[in-house]
Simulated assay, not measured.
Amino acid sequence: MAAKKKKITGDKKRKLLLVLRILLLTAALLYLFFFFYNNYFVENKAKLYFSSVDANYLKVEERVLDEKGDLYLQLFKELKAGPTEKELVRTIPEESKLLDYQIEGNNLKLNFSLELRNNHWGGSTGELMTIYSIVNTYTSLDEVESVKILLEGEEVETLVGHLDLSQPLMYNQKLTVSN
């Protein structure tokens, strides 16, 4: 026995087309809503990395940044200001300055004043927390893969004698803990 093919009448075709049009219109409206929401209503949040009190790890603290200001300078300003959470501590000496920066491909060169070294509290752990606080913060940006640290425009082998800064550094997940 052959299966009978069911014909769709003109009235049913119109109803089916109407339902399809409504679904397409709904999908288009939802797409536009999410597009505008993500581009115009989501705050410009940045991830900053600060040291735990015991200096065993870095933890993220989110900050809202001014969309009109220079992102790289704002990130350093916020790092220098220190954390707002009690269980975290600052990683950057207050007197330090970010003199300028250059982006070459996915590598970011950050040029700091000598105060980053001269006013640093020292120690291998302190140096590790300072450097990776900077590196992890900047590499959390989509466009930055690695960070090269300079002091007064000069390449340096180390900040205070413990961590090799002769090469660009990448994000260090081993030092971070999730919130």
Score class of each variant (00 low, 15 high):
Lys4Gln: 15
Tyr37Trp: 13
Ser140Tyr: 13
Leu159Thr: 03
Ile131Val: 09
Ile8Gly: 15
Leu79Val: 04
Phe36Ile: 12
Met1Thr: 11
Gly123Ala: 04
Tyr31Phe: 09
Pro83Trp: 00
Phe36Met: 11
Leu58Pro: 08
Leu20His: 01
Ser133Glu: 02
Pro83His: 03
His162Ala: 10
Thr130Ser: 00
Met1Ala: 11
Thr130Val: 03
Asn119Trp: 00
Ala55Ile: 15
Lys5Glu: 10
Lys47Ile: 11
Glu95Ile: 01
Lys5Leu: 14
Leu114Ile: 06
Asn136Gly: 12
Gln173Pro: 07
Asp100Leu: 02
Ser52Gln: 06
Val144Cys: 01
Tyr171Met: 03
Glu127Gly: 04
Glu43Cys: 05
His120Ile: 01
Asp54Lys: 09
Ser51His: 02
Tyr49Gln: 03
Leu24Thr: 11
Ala81Glu: 07
Val53Phe: 00
Glu152Phe: 07
Leu150Ala: 07
Lys86Arg: 05
Gly126Lys: 13
Leu25Cys: 07
Asn56Val: 15
Asn179Gly: 12
Lys45Pro: 08
Tyr49Ile: 01
Leu165His: 05
Tyr31Thr: 12
Leu30Ala: 00
Gly123Thr: 09
Glu143His: 06
Ile103Glu: 08
Asn118Gln: 02
Lys45Trp: 11
Ala46Ile: 10
Gly10Ile: 08
Asn44Gly: 06
Ser113Gly: 09
Glu115Tyr: 02
Thr9Leu: 01
Ser140Phe: 09
Ile149Tyr: 04
